[in-house]
Design a binder for these strands. Structure first.
Lengths: 220, 220
DNA sequence: TCAAAAGCTGACCAAAGTGTCAACTTATTA
DNA sequence: TAATAAGTTGACACTTTGGTCAGCTTTTGA
């Protein structure tokens, strides 16, 4: 019963061996992400995931032994984008540029990954039960690191005093909002679908408002 | 088959008639809110709602004809708090006080109604399918009204130019965050449970940052 | 007091969903 | 090319769950 061997291709160096397995798993996870995001863990039906990935249900069970295993695998991918936007927050940059870049990057990521973003939000709302201890630790570490950067900026007089953690929550929640709460955002903005312009305005409003509040007087 | 008559007590003026019905319905909705909030629409089991409300399942079905009907009834209550915090935003107040009060009120409401807040978020993420047209229209109207207030303030020179709609999104998302994404917020704030202090700091950070960015130079 | 209305409930279904399996086909390797 | 491993799948077993119902008890009103 050769299920999910962790090793790569057995003997030859090619990818013919792994090709089928890799492609099917990829296809299953892609479909699963979409469906979990739309319906949540309980709402998602394996039959639907199977259909969406073009495989019969029994074949899905050939690669994953349970619904939970699929969900875990999907969730694991979600943290990957966490660091990217945060990378813009670094001591050697001017806070002004850094925060603008951060907001822009986060919004852009959010926009390009609406499905994942929503699934992530869903998972957190449900209590983050399937987020591994390691992943949560990682997020905490990265946040702590960036909190230090803000504190340094404040100490250097480049930023007015502010609680860095609540500041991050402000930025994170505002950028996250547009993807997760799209229907509400659309209602508020009098549109039927969020467009590039909306995201631009969002980025501008968020970074300008926050920056004008944080930079020493007359710096913007 | 006397199910859910809309009329009140039949003949006598007392409340003995309605007491049983009213109490049971209240108990069912209370339990349902809790469970829908934790598990989502699909994840919630009627048997569990029944147990949590201390009634046998069949009795729940005596009052509600389907799971969807219970969900709808629960969702209906959710909009009620929408206006309350917004009421603080009125032209005849100084923007400074108004926005501070708004943020404080919203956070306080959020804190006191974590379950409902989370359920509301869940519903929106899922596409707001069960939010009635009327409710959405109502939210839009209220928002529009408050957008006008902000615009008036800007025109009067009491506020720097800002897109009022994105501003509201900023405020709304930031305040909402603490309840909906509690696990994440806890991680970020290095605590295991959000306390009153955390909400105070949140309120202060949000309103001060935003206000310093929005008020004309030197007004704060 | 008594009939009708309201409320209650155990037992039961039909539908849907997760997960299994034995038999089959395709790919790999020596 | 033959034996073995990997991949495929229809059919099925088993469980859960939304929802029903017939008959019961309690409340109400005259």
């Amino acid at each position: 019963m050769p299920k999910m061997p962790a090793n790569k291709a057995p003997t030859n160096g090619g990818d013919t061996d792994e090709k089928i397995r890799a492609r099917n798993i990829r296809e299953i996870l892609k479909a699963a992400t979409e469906i979990f995001s739309r319906k949540g863990f309980d709402g998602a039906r394996i039959a639907e995931i199977a259909e969406a990935s073009g495989l019969p249900k029994a074949n899905v069970y050939y690669y994953f032994s349970s619904k939970e295993e699929i969900y875990r695998a999907v969730i694991e991918h979600l943290i990957e984008g966490w660091d990217d936007a945060f990378a813009h927050i670094s001591v050697d940059r001017e806070p002004q540029d850094a925060i603008r870049s951060y907001v822009a990057a986060k919004l852009s990521y959010t926009r390009r990954n609406v499905i994942e973003s929503r699934l992530f939000a869903n998972e957190i709302i449900r209590g983050a039960q399937f987020l591994s201890r390691k992943d949560r630790q990682h997020m905490r570490t990265v946040t702590d690191e960036k909190v230090k950067v803000i504190e340094d900026w404040i100490a250097a007089g480049k930023l007015r005093p502010v609680d860095p953690r609540h500041l991050f929550i402000m930025l994170w929640s505002a950028t996250q909002f547009y993807a997760d709460f799209e229907p509400l955002a659309c209602d508020a903005l009098h549109t039927t679908k969020l467009k590039g312009v909306d995201y631009s305005h969002a980025a501008e409003t968020i970074s300008e408002t926050v920056l004008r509040g944080l930079l020493p007087a007359g710096q913007i």
